[in-house]
Structure formats: C-alpha cells, structure tokens
Design a protein around this nucleic acid. Sequence first.
RNA 1: GGCGACAUAGCCAAGCGGUAAGGCGGCGGUCUGCAAAACCGCUAUUCCCCGGUUCGAUUCCGGGUGUCGCCUCCA
Length: 502
Amino acid sequence: MSIRVYNTLTREKEQLVTRKPGRVDIYQCGVTPYDYTHMGHARQYVLWDVIRRYLRYRGYEVFCVQNVTDIDDKIIAKAQSLGISPDELARRFDREYLEVMDALGVERPDVYPRVTEHISDIIDVIRGLVERGHAYETVNGVYFDVSSFPDYGKLSGRNLDEMRAGARVEVDEAKKDPADFALWKKAKPGEPAWDSPWGRGRPGWHIECSTLALKYLGSGFDMHGGGTDLIFPHHENEIAQAEAYTGEGPFVRYWIHHEMVNVNQEKMSKSLGNLFTVRDVLKEFRPEDIRYFLVSVHYRSPANFGPGELNAAKSARARLVNVIDSIDHVLGTPGAKNGPREGDAGAGPAHDPAAIPGAADPAAGDLKSRIESLRNSFIEAMDDDFNTAGALGALHSLAREVNSFINRRRNAAFPPEDLEALKAARDTLWELGGLLGIFGVEPRVPGEDSRLLGKLVEFLVELRGQARERKEWALADQIRDRLKELGIVLEDTPQGTRWKME
RNA sequence: GGCGACAUAGCCAAGCGGUAAGGCGGCGGUCUGCAAAACCGCUAUUCCCCGGUUCGAUUCCGGGUGUCGCCUCCA
C-alpha cells in the first residue's frame, strides 16, 4: 500500500514519491495577519495538521514551513485606518492566529518565518531574477517578465494570450506586459520601506513564498499547500519566480489545494460579508466538533458551513466519544469485581451464550479481527488522497461493532478475553481518531480543580443508587433531572451508573 | 468572455467500471422502574437529463441543464 495524492499540476492522483526517502518536506502559504482568523483558515490548517499527523503515522519524517506575510498592501491600509503601525497590526493578528490554531489543536509548523525578517533574502532572489533577464525595473518597482518564462500558466491551465484577452488585468503603462507582476514595490511617502538596489520599497505579494520555500526547503521539495483561490495568480507566480531563479524544475513535486468553505453555497469571503471567525464559532462549539465538521468533507470539495452542519458533526462525534466512554466504564468497573449485578449474572436470556458468566464471548476474537480490518479501511481511505470522510466511516463502523458487543453482554460479567478485545478497540479508536484530532483537545480526565466536583457528583450518584434500590423513583429522578440541568448527564448501565459532563 | 470544478436519499457525505460506505434527522422495535446511551429494522430498484463505449456505467466518452470557483484581495 502506498499513499496517493492529487496533484493540481498534473490534475491526477499520483503515487507519493518523496524527494528524500522517508521524509516529506512541506510548505504552506501562511496568513496575512490583518484581520481575525476565519473558518476558511481553519479548514486549511486543520487539513494540514491531519496530513502531517497521518504522514508521521505512516512512518515519514515530516518537516513543515509556513510563512507569515507580515507586510503587504492590506496590512498598510488597515493599519492606517486604525492609526497604528503596520507592524503592530500584523503582530496583533498573528497572535490571534496562533491562539486560535492552538485552541483547535493544530500543531505549529517547524519553521514559521516572517517576511519582514527575510527582506535581504527576498532582495537576493529579485536581484538574481533581474540578472538572469527575468525581471526589469520601472518607475513603480521591479516586475517579473512573464514572457521570459515559457512554462507560465502550467499550474492554472492558462496561457498568456487568453489572459491578455481578458479585460480584467490591471493596467500599468510602465509594465511591458499586463500579466507581469510586481516583485518589488517602490514606497510611496509614509509607507513602510526597506533599502534595496532599486530604492526604498517592499516586496511584492508572491516573491516571499518562493524565497522562503527555497531558503528553508530548497528546490524540488515535496508538498505545497494552499486554497484553490491561490492557484492563480499566487502559486503560478511562485513557480515562475522559483524556477526562473534556480533554472531548474520542478519547484514543487505535489501541489495540493483544498476547496473553500462556503456559506449557503457561496464562498465565505470578506467581500460577501459572510465570514465566520474561528473565535466566534469557538464560543458555540468545541474545537473537536469544529474539526470533525472540517474533516467530514473531503478537502477537494467545498464544505458548506452552517449551524446545521456543525450540529450534525457534533452529534456524530458524540457517538464516537460515547463508545470510548462506554469501554472505559466497562474496563474501569469489571463486573467480576464490583459490578452491581454480580450476583445475577445468570439473569440474562438463557439462550444467549454471551450471558454465561466467565465464558468468553466467541465474538471477542471476531472483534479483534474486525478492529484490524477497520484499521485497514481507515488507512486505505487516508492513503487515497487523504480521504478523511471515508476514514470517519471506518471509525463509525468500529463504534457500532463495539456497542453491539457490549450490548450482547447485558448483565453478565466480562471475561478477560472480552476486556482485552475492548481495550484493543478503545486504543485503536483513540489512536486513529487522534490522527484526525477529533478527541485530543478535550480534557478526558477532569483537572485538579474539578476533582472535588467529581467526588460530589459521585456522592449524589451513590445516594441516587440507594434511592433506586428502595424504588424511590421520584427522588432518583429528581437527582438525575437536577444534575442534567447543571450539564451533568447520568446513564444507568448494567455495569453501574456513569456520568459525564455535557 | 476565457479557464476549471462539481451535480449521490429529507439533510451532510464517501465511492468513480461489477451492481449504492458512514453520519445527522425521521419512523417502528428491543433494552430500561422511567430515561439516557446503545442495538435491531425501515428511510436512494438507484446516483441531474439525453446519447455513446462496454457483457456490464453512479463510475469512461460526447452533448445538454444546473450550481460553484478562478481570471481583482482572498485559505
């Protein structure tokens, strides 16, 4: 088995063959920090967080570089309107980005370079491009000469003639060709600027990614990620700059683009005013539920975002969490030791062999083999272009088999073979779900502070248990109802009452 | 106008040549003191429409129709 990924450059799924065996070098387009982090960002970085975890699970060493474009036109404009410096604005929203990603359990990149700290590297690349005849200076700045790069358009499937025919290309009399794009922008008064051979100014939009990728990963690295909206012009230009500069290709082996987050079937974007910031969504939903939603749609399909979708994800995830809780409960209170129904283990239906105390359920062996087969389904789905939605299906199938297995025991004690199988199921669920990050972020065990709370709840559960033995149902129900109002749910199982926080 | 993607049940969503995963919701049943959770059954004779290729197509090809994206900042 091997991993296959869809490459935008070839428009085909290809077998993953890395530049260095056993290692995957990744570059991701980072954010331009000038506003709040939104759900579209969450989609990208959660996706790549999952890809990184999965590649590691499959035995690769993974190295990830992600830039911060902390100087550009939008930052300058926003900073001016707020009356603060561009640097202050960029740092504020960069911090916002990192906080939100931490909350979502997204692992940080290995290298997180800021553009403003790499101006001299950028100037070196621009100078190289000018020297090799791929760029020229005008009164406004330095421009990349697209006609000097015959492969221009290979990523986005465009050709220059078509583009020139399009009327929407910016008009700049000083440029040789409307499709030429800025590598260096000469500063206007009041704008932040750095010295360069072409006077004071700042980098153009695309050059930072080529420069930083070449600096930290070198030419020909493995995966480059970003949204489909960056294919043209951003990534097209990145290729042109990098390959023209190094004189060799390919700059990137696999271009991996995720689709957009939509709202009401329309792209979520600033211009449409339908943005959802992650910070706001986090007020209503747990990070794991947000991740579940994101991962329940294949990354190359648009993901429609809304409360309904999020709630469906929440319910679906609860099912998975619940099965883990069920197993933990069984493992923590084995019937043979302190199960409340120990004496009446034989009370189950006589025709049910699983109900004979101490007898191993023949299904235990089956469960174990099913665990492995579903693990393989999970891997198969993920190997196929990171099909997280398919992988989730395997997890749910495993959940049903476990629940069914536990159900069949009813009041009977679980023999060691069963407990072992259940533990294996639990570990597998936990491990594979962990690759998707749908369990990891929440505290499974109450922290120090809530230890007292736990003891109090257990005391109430104990009192309620006594009331139930006396068949004082009204009192028992009152305790359960009041706790429910406080967000604490009680469930009576053959292995005793268990409780959880909602 | 140019380029591209996608159309699967009430909803979300996999599958992409061998006869429709999974989830949410709904209905019926089992379990339960009652619940909750869970399990069982039902909820697409069919994958937008029309042609074609094939023994066979939701899956491939052609043509429609519809939705969306990029070509301007965008994840």
